[in-house]
Design a protein around this nucleic acid. Structure first.
Lengths: 343, 343
DNA sequence: ATTACTCTTGCAATCGATTGTAAATATGGA
DNA sequence: TCCATATTTACAATCGATTGCAAGAGTAAT
């Protein structure tokens, strides 16, 4: 048999002296096909090395069976967990997943959105690029009725569910925890450009201070890139302060950890001199000494939830209850030694 | 305009009173189309909200423009970095990436392979499931001439390049390093079922012992699942030994770290009582105290290399030099405090 | 034997874009 | 003006699978 030649349903039809329609129906187990015919078809297909051509079938069915997912970077522990959860749910539902990273560039995000649109994805999941300030480039999906679900870095839209955690609340709690431990001057390491996530966390921090009658001091707000390097720089900023903080709440763990390491290197005792809290519960948090107090929320779960919502929309596009428009994933405060001044 | 109606090249053709063929050629900038016509076509397309139907075009061109990637789990730091590298290269080359995880189950891997085959992926990248003991389910790709590239957990095949690191050599070096630090009894924490990766690392360990006139003792080989929990259990096994090892080489960092933590909890001093070495250079390795000596190799780079090789095969399928059949990515020993007995 | 069904099967159009080849138009030179 | 060569454009087949509808075969009841 020529290995180059692809077998089609027509080849099977010819061989069995029946029509291609019957072969097609036989292969997909259509009830109106005689059981014997069905068996013959399946056997012949097997024997001839037939493989269904999804390209043709997709064209005919106007359905690609593909779900697109766009993220900033997929190689963070959080994001890869999200994707793992998404992949699991989608593959169980029979969908394929195509992934693109915007590398946190708006321009790239726009291109990717366009490409996904042309590729006729059946649904789309998006965590916005860091810089993204509007979601116009996703409007085409909404217009065409293609289900769109935001997660983590969401964009509020009446027709698109957003899955996220309650960043304000979580950050309020963790700041409050630091205060309860006796901190009076709490620094906050956050981002330059306030994405909705960073903004919410800032808000929670601020509110906790206010509710505890502490001043919000601009000097204690360190705006950084939130990278490992930024953590080291932040440490130096703190060391250089005339009046150092007695607590630090960092918007992510990675940056918190590198900042802690640098401070330790300069003789700062944690938590005695400065208590620390992060966000994300990355692996590093339970390895650094002292272990880092942080906020835990499961990327894997968020991925699963987001994917399930998407599947749900795909199955019954009419039944879009506004109730599930904004979904809050639960998160929890994980208290570890980095913040425990009283024991 | 009806948002439900998809615009096709026929609609554009009708509006401009030209043929669909010309529209098609105009849109893809074919040289035989008059420049004025071309402009009119592009404008009309823009105005009418046309979007190319890749499903139709793929069918006609018999090319899906999709590359499949199959991995065990995508939510490890190493693997997500590989994928990030792959995605970058493929997207630059204009390909889409569809990802599936086998969850290290052979059965699932077989299914996924079949699905990818039917989906007409133009190329495939595979890191085998942990359990996989043969690669027959990928033969269909080879037969059809669909480029297949293995990475990390590779399968030797004359037609399929495999990108991996030299596990034997790296593990030889790290074991040798432990010996040079004065270790005489080095335990090795490895896997139950020896995947090629684990087997190679075992081989290097063994050879280093032999070359240094040390006995290879079966009691010191701990076969585990290599999980965090397994690390804790291994710690207890070590604690229970009549004659404890003075060094431990673990096949991966995560397990090494959890083992170290448990030993520390029981008063073992590292590296003085027991020196430690891991493999992978995960983030944890530079956070645990003492920092873990390990082997560094960049997942991102491996992903880039693997993807480039694949693209290369796609572009000139004939020019398959056997030279690039087995590609060794470089790796390096990262010496940290966990193994430094002499300072 | 005829009618009335139920089961199976086949016909033919359809999903949109691509492309080899033929036809139409345009350009230039004699 | 007319033929020869370039430029452009159109025709029609093709890529495979799917599906509404019609038609054929088979069975049972009258």
């Amino acid at each position: 048999m020529d290995p180059e030649k692809e077998i089609t349903i027509y080849d099977i039809a010819k061989k069995l002296n029946i029509s291609a329609a019957t072969v097609s129906r036989g292969l997909m187990d259509h009830p109106s096909v005689n059981i014997n015919t069905k068996q013959k078809v399946v056997e012949a297909a097997q024997e001839m090395g037939y493989r269904s051509n999804h390209l043709a079938s997709n064209l005919r069915k106007k359905k690609s069976n593909i779900i697109g997912i766009i993220v900033g970077n997929l190689n963070s522990s959080f994001m890869s967990n999200v994707i793992a959860g998404v992949e699991k749910v989608l593959s169980e539902a029979g969908y394929n997943l195509i992934i693109s990273q915007s590398l946190d560039s708006v321009a790239k995000e726009v291109n990717i959105a366009q490409a996904m649109y042309n590729n006729r994805v059946d649904g789309l999941m998006v965590s916005l690029a860091y810089e993204t300030e509007n979601a116009d480039h996703f409007e085409s999906f909404v217009k065409r009725g293609i289900p769109l679900v935001y997660f983590d870095r969401v964009w509020p839209h009446p027709k698109c569910p957003g899955i996220e955690i309650d960043n304000v609340k979580a950050s309020y709690h963790i700041t409050d925890h630091l205060i309860k431990q006796g901190c009076k001057r709490i620094a906050h390491i956050t981002a330059f450009r306030l994405s909705s996530v960073a903004a919410d966390r800032y808000k929670g921090y601020e509110q906790a201070l206010i509710d505890n009658n502490l001043r919000v001091e601009e000097d204690l707000i360190l705006r950084t890139q939130l990278t490992l390097k930024a953590g080291i720089e932040a440490a130096h900023t703190i060391l250089a302060m005339a009046k150092r903080p007695d607590g630090v709440f960092v918007t992510n763990d990675a940056c918190a950890v590198s900042c802690m390491q640098e401070l330790k290197r300069h003789g700062i005792r944690i938590p005695d001199d400065i208590a620390f809290a992060g966000f994300n519960n990355d692996t590093e948090a339970s390895i650094i000494e002292p272990n880092l107090t942080t906020v835990n929320y499961k990327g894997y779960d968020m991925g699963e939830v987001a994917a399930k919502i998407l599947i749900n929309r795909l199955n019954n596009s009419e039944n879009v209850s506004p109730a599930d428009n904004k979904l809050i994933q639960k998160s929890e405060l994980v208290i570890r030694d980095s913040s425990l001044k009283k024991k």
